[in-house]
Computed example of a mutant assay.
Amino acid sequence: MPHFIIECTAEIAAEYNEDFLFQELHKVAQATELFNPQDIKVRMNAYPTSTVGGIVNSPFIHVFAHIMSGRTVLQKAELSKAIVHRLTELFPEVPHIAMNVYEFEAASYCKRT
């Protein structure tokens, strides 16, 4: 925990090496000091076709963060702003960059260990 899932058009995924992009998001998430760096997970789903606002294959990046509950609204907002800011620096030509945060409840979360 946490999980950062990048969804984007395939062209965007091809623009940068995935490892570079994953490292950049990891750095931003780590800099917030909200998470243990060893627990941060980043992955990507790139879509070969999509529509945004009725425009076919309009470039977009959306990050879905799934984190354990317990952070304030301000902390979650600052996390979103920091990641969107970095993505905007990396992809200044992409018109649609956004992020949202979902919370897991510790009581209902289960993993192998």
Rank of each mutant, 00 (worst) to 15 (best):
I97H: 00
P95I: 07
E78A: 05
V101R: 10
S58R: 01
A98V: 03
M68S: 15
L79S: 00
V94L: 03
F60A: 03
P59K: 00
I55D: 13
E105G: 10
V63N: 11
E93T: 14
A77R: 07
E89Q: 15
P92L: 05
T72L: 02
N57G: 03
V73K: 12
A82I: 01
M99F: 07
M68N: 13
V73E: 12
L87H: 05
A77Q: 08
M99H: 08
E103A: 07
S80C: 13
G70V: 10
I83M: 12
R86G: 15
E78K: 09
V63R: 06
I97V: 09
M68C: 10
K81W: 02
H96R: 02
H85C: 13
E89S: 14
V73C: 13
V56Y: 04
F104H: 13
E78L: 06
I83K: 01
V84K: 08
H66Q: 15
L87M: 12
R71S: 12
A77E: 10
T88L: 07
H62D: 08
I67C: 08
V52H: 08
M68W: 01
P59E: 03
H85A: 15
G70S: 10
G53C: 03
N100D: 05
I61F: 04
G53F: 04
I67Y: 06
V52P: 10
N100S: 11
H85L: 14
A98S: 13
A65N: 08
F64M: 14
V63C: 12
R86I: 12
F60P: 01
F60R: 01
A65W: 02
P59C: 01
H85Q: 15
K76I: 02
S69V: 14
P92F: 03
A77F: 01
F60K: 02
M68A: 15
Y102T: 07
F64D: 12
T88H: 13
R71N: 13
V101N: 08
V101Y: 09
G53E: 06
G53I: 05
L74N: 12
I61C: 07
I55N: 05
L87R: 02
F60T: 02
Q75G: 10
F104T: 10
L87I: 04
F64N: 13
F60M: 03
H62C: 10
E78G: 05
S58M: 11
R71E: 12
G53W: 00
F104C: 08
E105W: 12
R71P: 08
V101C: 11
G70C: 08
V56N: 07
K76L: 04
N57C: 02
E93L: 09
V56P: 02
F64Q: 14
A65Y: 05
M68D: 10
E93G: 11
H62K: 09
T88P: 00
P95N: 02
I67E: 11
A77P: 00
F104A: 10
E103L: 04
N57S: 01
P59S: 11
V56Q: 09
N100Y: 11
A65S: 10
S80H: 07
I83T: 12
F104Q: 08
A77N: 06
G53S: 10
V101H: 06
N100L: 04
I97L: 02
Y102R: 05
Q75E: 11
L74W: 01
E103I: 07
